[in-house]
Amino acid sequence: MELNHDLVRCILLAIEASENITGINEEELLYYLEKHGNYNDRNSIAYTVSKLKEAGFITGDIRWANNSPTWIMAGNLTYDGHKFLDNIRDDKVWKDTKTILSKFSSVSLSFVSSVASNVISQLIQKQLGLN
């Protein structure tokens, strides 16, 4: 299964937006994803949550039965999750980052973060008139 970077971003934003101190629950996550990105494929959501957990970006967990997700708990952001989200949160930065990344067939999340960081640096330099 392919990792959808837009879904990655949307899940991280959903977790950050949650006021639940123990982490976003499944109902809240699915509502946020449907509202903000029209993501309603439970398998893709579960896969993305599991990869974000593997990457150390979230504290979540998935429960599986009969090869289907029965429980999706995205949890909270880790410190690394906050750092990654800080690089991709801004809509303009995300749009510019995706434009750059569209030239490649696949990229890692660390590369996404690096490109976003460079986009931010360029925008700051432009704003300060340092180009």
Rank of each mutant, 00 (worst) to 15 (best):
G56M: 13
A116Q: 03
L30N: 02
A74R: 01
I62P: 01
D6G: 09
L128C: 05
K98E: 04
D41P: 08
K98F: 13
N87Y: 08
S106Y: 15
K51A: 04
R9P: 02
L3S: 02
L3P: 08
G60R: 08
T97N: 02
L101W: 05
E28C: 03
R42E: 10
L101G: 02
Y79A: 15
L130F: 11
S18M: 04
I100R: 10
V93P: 00
T48K: 04
L33D: 04
T70S: 12
S113K: 15
L101I: 06
L130P: 01
N131Y: 12
A65V: 15
R63M: 10
L3Q: 12
L3R: 08
S117I: 01
S50V: 03
Y32I: 07
S68Y: 15
N4T: 05
K35P: 00
S102Y: 07
R63S: 09
W64H: 10
S110W: 11
V107F: 14
F84C: 11
S108M: 11
E16N: 05
A116H: 07
H36N: 13
E34W: 13
D6I: 06
I24L: 11
V49Y: 00
G23D: 05
L109Q: 08
R89S: 13
N131H: 09
Y39T: 00
V49F: 00
Y39R: 03
D6V: 11
N118S: 14
L109M: 14
E26H: 00
N43M: 14
I100S: 01
E16R: 10
G81Q: 06
A55S: 14
E27K: 11
R63D: 05
S68V: 15
G129R: 02
T22A: 11
I100Q: 01
G75N: 07
G129I: 07
S102C: 01
L3A: 01
H5S: 08
A74N: 01
E2S: 09
V93H: 00
Y79G: 09
V107A: 13
L101A: 04
I15K: 01
L101H: 02
N43W: 05
E19K: 06
I62A: 05
S110M: 15
G75W: 10
W71L: 14
D61T: 15
G60S: 05
G129C: 09
L123C: 04
K95T: 13
N76Q: 06
R89Q: 13
D6Q: 05
G56Q: 07
N118D: 12
L7I: 06
C10E: 08
S50M: 15
A65Y: 15
D91P: 08
D96R: 06
T70P: 05
Y47M: 09
G81S: 06
V93L: 01
S50T: 13
L30K: 10
S110T: 11
T97W: 07
A14E: 00
I120S: 03
Q125W: 11
S105F: 14
